[in-house]
Amino acid sequence: MTPVLRRVAGRARALAPAPTGDLDAHVVVRRGTWTLDLALTVPAGRVVAVLGPNGGGKSTALAALAGLVRLDAGHVRLGDRTLADAAADVDVPPERRRLGVLLQDVLLVPHLTARENVAFGRRAAGEHAGDARRRADDLLAALAVEDRARTRAHRLSGGQAQRVGLARALAVDPAALLLDEPFAALDASGRTVARAVVERHVRATGVPAVLVTHDLADALALADDVVVVEHGRAVQRGTAHAVAAAPATPYVAGLVAALDGRAPGVVT
């Protein structure tokens, strides 16, 4: 091996799974007169669904957990690590939080292929291209989009892009999962596959997961607990079934009614 090759090989390292633990957060974000003020606890290995109408603050809460929106007050702690603490002026930048984030708009890197997008985080951490690609291919296969591995992201359909985005978030062995409407663009069968992949990942790795959705079916299928967020505040908490059984607001009641109108087989 030439010295150059050895040096390259020496630099390429495998990405170790991030140390995880309970997610404990209190996020306060002010936007003029509008305020998000949400406390959220997700035990390791559990899924908490954040439910709510558009504009209610659930996506902002997720962005704040990811480090994309600065806290005006409150904190984000994950296991032993403090990711943000407004009082102590701690704000770990997103690239050092070791989270698996899927934003609502997915936002893949358009000129990279699906596979390169999934391998992106591991390559950024210095992992060897071959290792990162194998991991990417496994995840794409698990989400049934392996046939699109070589397709550039800007040529993917909405549903395909969403699955690639989910694979990309899972690929970095994150310390926590933050998923914003991860199934919205999927058809029924794709949705079932994707939910199963997320559930398996959470149980296998023991990471806490936050699932932002406006679909009660997602919550019932995946979440241990549900927080309903309206006007920037939590208006109801409980297990998914408890919330579905006793809606505290007209919005939740509407979700339940919409769900009842669907094929019962969707609810597990």
């Binding site: 690239e95 936002l107 358009p110 992106f120 950024a124 990309r168 970095v172």
Partner: peptide, 12 residues
Amino acid sequence: RREAAAATLGAS
């Protein structure tokens, strides 16, 4: 926002 999304994956 694409850059922000890439940053969440751990990219410097």
